[in-house]
Simulated scan of single mutants.
Amino acid sequence: MNTWVSALAGGVLIGTAATLLLWLTGRIAGISGILGGVVMPRSGDVAWRVAFLLGLIGLIGAGAAWLWWAPGAYAPRQGFPPLLLVIAGVLVGFGTRMGNGCTSGHGVCGLGRLSPRSLVAVSTFMLTAIATTYLVRHVA
């Protein structure tokens, strides 16, 4: 299957799932907000969050099973310094908190709702990603 076909199919599935969650429950499919609601729970608002996160864990398990079943299908990048990965994770977490949401919440759900705040957030995410990629690949 072509890369663009699987990417398109994945995007359609993510968009459909986020839309159904919003239409059927009025909830946003932003991962940081969903996880935050499990870490700092409110009464009666945890079960759906846990179910959502378990579904994501199941998807990760499905990906791991695919790698086991078809080991040559995908070669993960290796050689990243562990400290750099930890620093990157902390910065992503900080940015998520500072931006009041993550890429899934702003990019998939916020833009779909025509949120100006999400447009600014996604523009910031993308410009930062482009600049970082350029610096890492061409300057450093």
Rank of each mutant, 00 (worst) to 15 (best):
L54N: 02
V50G: 04
C102R: 13
L119Q: 06
G61V: 05
I28W: 13
A17L: 14
S32E: 01
F52P: 00
S43E: 10
I34A: 05
L13R: 01
G72H: 10
L111D: 03
W66R: 10
R113L: 15
L13D: 01
M126N: 07
I87S: 08
F125T: 03
H106Q: 08
L111V: 02
V50F: 08
T25K: 14
Q78G: 04
T103M: 07
A121I: 11
Y74T: 09
P82V: 04
S115H: 05
M126C: 09
T25S: 10
M98V: 15
G89V: 07
V120P: 01
C102A: 07
P82Y: 08
V90A: 12
M40Q: 14
G79Y: 13
V12K: 00
A75V: 12
V108L: 09
A17R: 09
V122E: 05
V92Q: 04
F125N: 04
I14L: 15
F52W: 13
M126Y: 11
A70M: 08
R113I: 09
V90W: 11
L54A: 14
L119D: 00
H106W: 12
R117A: 04
A62Y: 11
L85W: 13
I28Y: 04
V86H: 03
Q78N: 04
I57F: 12
M40I: 06
C102Q: 07
R97W: 13
I34M: 04
G63H: 12
L24N: 06
L59S: 07
I28L: 00
G107Q: 03
A64E: 06
L53C: 10
I14T: 09
R42H: 13
I28Q: 09
I57E: 03
I87M: 11
I34T: 13
G99Q: 11
S43I: 00
R27N: 08
L91S: 03
S118D: 08
N100K: 15
M40P: 00
W48D: 02
R27A: 05
P76R: 09
I34S: 10
V38I: 15
V92I: 15
L22R: 15
A65F: 14
N100S: 11
L53K: 02
L119M: 03
P116C: 06
L67I: 03
S118Y: 05
R113P: 05
L13A: 14
I87K: 08
F80M: 12
I28K: 11
G63W: 14
A29P: 03
M98C: 06
G95M: 06
R49V: 03
A73D: 07
A51C: 11
G63M: 15
S43A: 09
A73H: 08
G101M: 01
W48H: 13
T124P: 00
W66G: 00
V38Q: 01
V38K: 12
I31M: 13
T128W: 13
G79R: 11
A65S: 07
M98T: 14
G107R: 12
S104L: 13
G101K: 14
L53W: 01
